[in-house]
Protein backbone atom coordinates (compact mmCIF):
# COMPACT_ATOMS: atom_id res chain seq x y z
CA UNK A 1 0.00 0.00 0.00
CA UNK A 2 2.30 2.62 1.25
CA UNK A 3 4.96 3.59 -1.23
CA UNK A 4 8.17 3.63 0.74
CA UNK A 5 10.45 6.21 -0.78
CA UNK A 6 14.04 6.01 0.29
CA UNK A 7 14.67 9.71 0.34
CA UNK A 8 13.55 11.35 3.55
CA UNK A 9 12.47 14.97 3.27
CA UNK A 10 15.12 17.32 4.66
CA UNK A 11 15.03 18.54 8.25
CA UNK A 12 17.30 20.17 10.81
CA UNK A 13 18.86 17.49 13.00
CA UNK A 14 19.60 18.25 16.65
CA UNK A 15 21.36 15.87 18.99
CA UNK A 16 21.06 17.39 22.45
CA UNK A 17 23.05 15.84 25.26
CA UNK A 18 20.59 16.54 28.08
CA UNK A 19 16.90 16.75 28.88
CA UNK A 20 17.04 20.53 29.33
CA UNK A 21 18.49 21.09 25.89
CA UNK A 22 16.06 18.64 24.34
CA UNK A 23 13.09 20.34 25.97
CA UNK A 24 14.32 23.78 24.94
CA UNK A 25 14.61 22.66 21.31
CA UNK A 26 11.22 20.99 21.44
CA UNK A 27 9.72 24.15 22.84
CA UNK A 28 11.39 26.21 20.14
CA UNK A 29 9.99 24.10 17.30
CA UNK A 30 6.59 23.24 18.79
CA UNK A 31 4.57 21.14 16.37
CA UNK A 32 7.28 21.58 13.74
CA UNK A 33 9.64 19.46 15.84
CA UNK A 34 9.83 15.67 16.13
CA UNK A 35 11.39 13.59 18.89
CA UNK A 36 13.47 10.69 17.62
CA UNK A 37 14.07 7.71 19.91
CA UNK A 38 14.72 4.31 18.30
CA UNK A 39 13.27 5.48 14.99
CA UNK A 40 11.19 2.39 14.31
CA UNK A 41 7.93 4.27 14.16
CA UNK A 42 9.55 7.53 13.16
CA UNK A 43 11.33 6.38 10.01
CA UNK A 44 8.18 4.79 8.60
CA UNK A 45 6.55 8.20 8.63
CA UNK A 46 9.61 9.97 7.31
CA UNK A 47 10.30 7.55 4.48
CA UNK A 48 6.71 7.71 3.35
CA UNK A 49 7.11 11.48 3.50
CA UNK A 50 3.84 11.70 5.37
CA UNK A 51 5.28 13.49 8.38
CA UNK A 52 7.70 16.22 7.43
CA UNK A 53 8.91 17.98 10.55
CA UNK A 54 11.20 20.98 10.23
CA UNK A 55 13.46 19.71 13.01
CA UNK A 56 14.27 16.32 14.46
CA UNK A 57 15.44 16.17 18.05
CA UNK A 58 17.37 12.92 18.38
CA UNK A 59 17.51 11.65 21.96
CA UNK A 60 20.31 9.16 21.32
CA UNK A 61 22.80 11.21 23.32
CA UNK A 62 20.51 12.03 26.23
CA UNK A 63 22.07 9.50 28.56
CA UNK A 64 20.31 10.73 31.67
CA UNK A 65 17.07 9.11 30.50
CA UNK A 66 18.63 5.81 29.54
CA UNK A 67 18.98 2.91 31.97
CA UNK A 68 17.27 1.30 34.91
CA UNK A 69 17.80 2.44 38.48
CA UNK A 70 16.44 1.70 41.92
CA UNK A 71 13.56 4.10 42.52
CA UNK A 72 12.26 5.55 45.77
CA UNK A 73 9.96 3.42 47.96
CA UNK A 74 11.34 0.15 46.67
CA UNK A 75 10.26 0.75 43.10
CA UNK A 76 12.18 0.97 39.85
CA UNK A 77 12.96 3.94 37.61
CA UNK A 78 13.27 3.22 33.91
CA UNK A 79 14.58 5.91 31.56
CA UNK A 80 12.44 6.42 28.45
CA UNK A 81 15.45 5.78 26.20
CA UNK A 82 16.15 2.35 27.68
CA UNK A 83 15.98 -0.27 24.94
CA UNK A 84 13.25 -2.91 25.05
CA UNK A 85 15.95 -5.59 25.21
CA UNK A 86 17.48 -3.96 28.27
CA UNK A 87 14.08 -3.86 29.92
CA UNK A 88 13.26 -7.48 29.05
CA UNK A 89 16.64 -8.77 30.20
CA UNK A 90 17.21 -6.69 33.31
CA UNK A 91 17.54 -8.95 36.36
CA UNK A 92 15.41 -6.73 38.61
CA UNK A 93 12.68 -6.35 36.02
CA UNK A 94 12.64 -10.09 35.50
CA UNK A 95 12.49 -10.93 39.17
CA UNK A 96 10.24 -8.15 40.47
CA UNK A 97 8.18 -7.15 37.42
CA UNK A 98 8.02 -10.28 35.29
CA UNK A 99 4.86 -8.92 33.65
CA UNK A 100 6.85 -6.08 32.11
CA UNK A 101 9.81 -8.30 31.20
CA UNK A 102 7.44 -10.62 29.39
CA UNK A 103 5.66 -7.78 27.58
CA UNK A 104 8.89 -6.10 26.44
CA UNK A 105 10.31 -9.47 25.37
CA UNK A 106 7.32 -10.11 23.12
CA UNK A 107 7.66 -6.91 21.12
CA UNK A 108 8.52 -7.54 17.49
CA UNK A 109 11.98 -9.07 16.84
CA UNK A 110 15.31 -9.06 18.70
CA UNK A 111 16.69 -6.42 16.33
CA UNK A 112 13.68 -4.18 16.86
CA UNK A 113 13.90 -4.66 20.63
CA UNK A 114 17.58 -3.72 20.55
CA UNK A 115 16.85 -0.53 18.69
CA UNK A 116 13.38 0.32 20.01
CA UNK A 117 13.02 2.15 23.32
CA UNK A 118 10.50 1.76 26.11
CA UNK A 119 9.50 5.41 25.73
CA UNK A 120 9.04 5.07 21.96
CA UNK A 121 7.07 1.88 22.44
CA UNK A 122 4.63 3.61 24.75
CA UNK A 123 4.29 6.77 22.68
CA UNK A 124 4.19 5.07 19.26
CA UNK A 125 1.35 5.95 16.91
CA UNK A 126 -1.38 3.58 15.78
CA UNK A 127 -0.71 1.19 12.90
CA UNK A 128 -4.04 1.79 11.09
CA UNK A 129 -2.90 1.50 7.49
CA UNK A 130 -5.31 4.01 6.03
CA UNK A 131 -3.77 6.56 8.33
CA UNK A 132 -0.25 5.34 7.79
CA UNK A 133 -0.75 5.53 4.02
CA UNK A 134 -1.09 9.26 4.46
CA UNK A 135 -4.82 9.42 3.83
CA UNK A 136 -6.49 12.48 5.29
CA UNK A 137 -8.58 10.69 7.93
CA UNK A 138 -9.74 12.20 11.24
CA UNK A 139 -6.51 11.24 12.95
CA UNK A 140 -4.58 13.07 10.26
CA UNK A 141 -6.72 16.18 10.76
CA UNK A 142 -9.34 15.30 8.14
CA UNK A 143 -13.05 14.60 8.32
CA UNK A 144 -13.48 10.91 7.53
CA UNK A 145 -12.59 7.49 8.90
CA UNK A 146 -11.71 5.11 6.08
CA UNK A 147 -11.59 2.12 8.41
CA UNK A 148 -15.17 2.17 9.64
CA UNK A 149 -16.99 2.26 6.33
CA UNK A 150 -18.97 -0.72 5.11
CA UNK A 151 -16.27 -2.08 2.83
CA UNK A 152 -13.29 -1.14 4.96
CA UNK A 153 -10.59 -3.61 5.92
CA UNK A 154 -10.74 -3.40 9.67
CA UNK A 155 -9.76 -6.79 10.99
CA UNK A 156 -7.17 -5.23 13.30
CA UNK A 157 -9.33 -2.32 14.43
CA UNK A 158 -11.19 -1.71 17.66
CA UNK A 159 -14.25 -3.16 19.34
CA UNK A 160 -14.62 -0.46 21.98
CA UNK A 161 -13.59 3.10 22.78
CA UNK A 162 -14.24 4.30 19.22
CA UNK A 163 -15.26 7.85 18.53
CA UNK A 164 -15.19 8.29 14.76
CA UNK A 165 -11.66 6.80 14.78
CA UNK A 166 -11.56 3.00 15.24
CA UNK A 167 -7.79 2.53 15.40
CA UNK A 168 -6.09 0.62 18.21
CA UNK A 169 -3.10 1.22 20.42
CA UNK A 170 -0.40 -1.23 19.24
CA UNK A 171 1.96 -1.16 22.21
CA UNK A 172 2.72 -4.35 24.14
CA UNK A 173 4.36 -2.62 27.07
CA UNK A 174 1.53 -0.11 27.56
CA UNK A 175 -1.02 -2.57 29.05
CA UNK A 176 1.67 -4.05 31.28
CA UNK A 177 2.57 -0.61 32.63
CA UNK A 178 -1.10 0.22 33.28
CA UNK A 179 -1.53 -3.11 35.10
CA UNK A 180 1.58 -2.37 37.16
CA UNK A 181 0.24 1.06 38.09
CA UNK A 182 3.35 2.75 36.69
CA UNK A 183 3.78 6.51 36.51
CA UNK A 184 4.94 8.43 33.48
CA UNK A 185 7.17 11.42 34.10
CA UNK A 186 6.93 14.15 31.47
CA UNK A 187 9.27 17.13 31.12
CA UNK A 188 8.46 20.32 29.25
CA UNK A 189 9.54 23.94 29.30
CA UNK A 190 6.99 24.57 32.04
CA UNK A 191 8.40 21.89 34.34
CA UNK A 192 7.81 18.26 35.19
CA UNK A 193 4.44 16.48 35.36
CA UNK A 194 3.55 12.95 36.35
CA UNK A 195 0.68 10.83 35.05
CA UNK A 196 -0.67 7.50 36.18
CA UNK A 197 -0.10 5.15 33.24
CA UNK A 198 -3.86 4.69 32.86
CA UNK A 199 -4.30 8.46 32.39
CA UNK A 200 -1.40 8.79 29.99
CA UNK A 201 -3.33 7.42 27.01
CA UNK A 202 -5.98 9.48 25.27
CA UNK A 203 -9.00 8.26 23.32
CA UNK A 204 -10.28 9.87 20.12
CA UNK A 205 -13.32 11.18 21.97
CA UNK A 206 -10.98 13.58 23.76
CA UNK A 207 -8.38 14.14 21.06
CA UNK A 208 -8.63 12.33 17.78
CA UNK A 209 -5.13 13.30 16.63
CA UNK A 210 -3.15 12.03 19.62
CA UNK A 211 -2.60 8.67 21.33
CA UNK A 212 -1.25 10.09 24.60
CA UNK A 213 -1.40 13.22 26.69
CA UNK A 214 1.92 14.37 25.19
CA UNK A 215 1.65 17.65 23.34
CA UNK A 216 4.32 19.24 21.18
CA UNK A 217 7.13 20.17 23.54
CA UNK A 218 6.47 17.32 25.99
CA UNK A 219 9.21 14.77 26.58
CA UNK A 220 8.56 11.46 28.31
CA UNK A 221 11.61 11.08 30.53
CA UNK A 222 11.04 8.23 32.95
CA UNK A 223 8.68 5.41 33.77
CA UNK A 224 8.39 4.86 37.51
CA UNK A 225 7.28 1.47 38.79
CA UNK A 226 5.90 1.28 42.33
CA UNK A 227 7.28 -1.39 44.68
CA UNK A 228 5.96 -4.81 43.67
CA UNK A 229 3.00 -5.98 45.74
CA UNK A 230 3.52 -8.92 48.10
CA UNK A 231 2.11 -12.13 46.75
CA UNK A 232 0.86 -10.58 43.52
CA UNK A 233 -0.01 -12.90 40.67
CA UNK A 234 0.30 -11.81 37.09
CA UNK A 235 -0.70 -12.85 33.62
CA UNK A 236 0.31 -11.62 30.18
CA UNK A 237 -0.78 -13.00 26.86
CA UNK A 238 -0.38 -11.53 23.42
CA UNK A 239 -2.27 -12.96 20.46
CA UNK A 240 -0.84 -12.19 17.02
CA UNK A 241 -1.18 -13.57 13.53
CA UNK A 242 2.32 -15.04 13.40
CA UNK A 243 4.21 -16.55 16.29
CA UNK A 244 7.57 -15.29 15.02
CA UNK A 245 6.80 -11.58 15.28
CA UNK A 246 3.85 -9.35 14.74
CA UNK A 247 1.76 -6.62 16.28
CA UNK A 248 -0.82 -7.77 18.76
CA UNK A 249 -4.42 -8.55 17.82
CA UNK A 250 -5.47 -8.66 21.46
CA UNK A 251 -3.20 -8.50 24.48
CA UNK A 252 -4.14 -8.94 28.12
CA UNK A 253 -2.11 -7.94 31.17
CA UNK A 254 -3.36 -8.54 34.67
CA UNK A 255 -2.14 -8.26 38.25
CA UNK A 256 -4.08 -10.01 40.99
CA UNK A 257 -3.63 -9.63 44.72
CA UNK A 258 -4.77 -12.93 46.15
CA UNK A 259 -4.96 -13.66 49.87
CA UNK A 260 -6.47 -16.73 51.48
CA UNK A 261 -7.50 -17.93 48.04
CA UNK A 262 -9.58 -14.78 47.42
CA UNK A 263 -8.88 -11.88 45.07
CA UNK A 264 -8.34 -8.78 47.21
CA UNK A 265 -7.41 -6.40 44.45
CA UNK A 266 -7.02 -6.61 40.70
CA UNK A 267 -5.91 -4.68 37.67
CA UNK A 268 -7.01 -6.13 34.37
CA UNK A 269 -5.93 -4.36 31.20
CA UNK A 270 -6.54 -5.26 27.56
CA UNK A 271 -4.82 -3.63 24.61
CA UNK A 272 -5.37 -3.54 20.85
CA UNK A 273 -9.14 -3.61 21.28
CA UNK A 274 -9.51 0.16 21.68
CA UNK A 275 -7.55 3.28 20.77
CA UNK A 276 -5.97 3.10 24.25
CA UNK A 277 -5.16 0.28 26.68
CA UNK A 278 -8.48 -0.50 28.36
CA UNK A 279 -8.48 -0.89 32.10
CA UNK A 280 -11.42 -3.18 32.83
CA UNK A 281 -12.84 -1.45 35.89
CA UNK A 282 -16.12 -3.39 35.91
CA UNK A 283 -14.24 -6.69 35.73
CA UNK A 284 -11.95 -5.66 38.58
CA UNK A 285 -14.91 -4.71 40.77
CA UNK A 286 -16.77 -7.92 39.97
CA UNK A 287 -13.93 -10.32 40.77
CA UNK A 288 -12.91 -8.75 44.06
CA UNK A 289 -13.75 -11.09 46.93
CA UNK A 290 -13.97 -14.14 44.66
CA UNK A 291 -11.66 -17.06 44.01
CA UNK A 292 -9.55 -16.86 40.87
CA UNK A 293 -11.41 -19.85 39.44
CA UNK A 294 -12.71 -20.90 36.05
CA UNK A 295 -16.11 -19.63 37.07
CA UNK A 296 -14.88 -16.19 38.12
CA UNK A 297 -12.83 -16.02 34.93
CA UNK A 298 -15.87 -16.90 32.85
CA UNK A 299 -17.90 -14.17 34.49
CA UNK A 300 -15.05 -11.67 34.08
CA UNK A 301 -14.78 -12.52 30.38
CA UNK A 302 -18.47 -11.85 29.86
CA UNK A 303 -18.29 -8.53 31.68
CA UNK A 304 -15.17 -7.54 29.75
CA UNK A 305 -16.99 -7.58 26.41
CA UNK A 306 -20.20 -5.96 27.54
CA UNK A 307 -20.89 -3.11 25.17
CA UNK A 308 -18.19 -4.23 22.73
CA UNK A 309 -19.14 -3.65 19.10
CA UNK A 310 -17.49 -5.38 16.21
CA UNK A 311 -16.74 -3.76 12.88
CA UNK A 312 -17.23 -5.74 9.71
CA UNK A 313 -14.14 -7.92 10.01
CA UNK A 314 -13.20 -8.05 13.66
CA UNK A 315 -15.89 -9.83 15.63
CA UNK A 316 -13.31 -12.48 16.48
CA UNK A 317 -11.79 -9.90 18.83
CA UNK A 318 -14.84 -10.10 21.06
CA UNK A 319 -14.45 -13.84 21.59
CA UNK A 320 -10.72 -13.42 21.96
CA UNK A 321 -11.06 -10.73 24.59
CA UNK A 322 -13.60 -12.80 26.51
CA UNK A 323 -11.26 -15.77 26.60
CA UNK A 324 -8.08 -13.86 27.35
CA UNK A 325 -9.69 -12.05 30.27
CA UNK A 326 -10.96 -15.36 31.57
CA UNK A 327 -7.50 -16.91 31.38
CA UNK A 328 -5.87 -13.85 32.88
CA UNK A 329 -7.86 -14.47 36.04
CA UNK A 330 -8.00 -18.24 36.12
CA UNK A 331 -4.36 -18.79 35.18
CA UNK A 332 -2.61 -15.86 36.86
CA UNK A 333 0.41 -17.15 38.71
Amino acid sequence: MAVIRDMIAPFELYQPAGVDDAVRLMDQYGDEGWVLAGGLDTFDWFKDRIKRPAAVIDLAAVDEIRGIAEGGDGGLDIGAMTSLTAVAEHADVQSRYPLLAEAAGLVATPQIRNQGTLGGNIVQDTRCWYYRSGWPCYRAGGNICYASTRRAMNREHCIMGADRCVAVNPSDTAPALVALDAEMVVASSSGERTYAAADFFVGPDIDIERMTVLEPGDLLTRIVLPAPREGARWYFEKIRDRKSWDFSLVTVASMLQVQGGVIQDARVVVNSIAPYPVRMGAVEAAIRGREPSEETGQMAGEIAVEGARALRHNDYKIALTRNLVKRSIRDAA
Binding site: S133, G134, W135, P136, A140, G141, G142
Partner: peptide, 9 residues
Protein backbone atom coordinates in the same frame (compact mmCIF):
# COMPACT_ATOMS: atom_id res chain seq x y z
CA UNK B 1 -6.01 30.71 5.35
CA UNK B 2 -9.77 30.35 5.07
CA UNK B 3 -9.94 26.63 4.44
CA UNK B 4 -8.30 23.51 5.73
CA UNK B 5 -7.40 21.37 2.72
CA UNK B 6 -5.95 17.90 2.19
CA UNK B 7 -4.95 15.50 -0.58
CA UNK B 8 -7.47 12.69 -0.75
CA UNK B 9 -6.40 9.11 -1.61
Amino acid sequence: EFLRRALNP
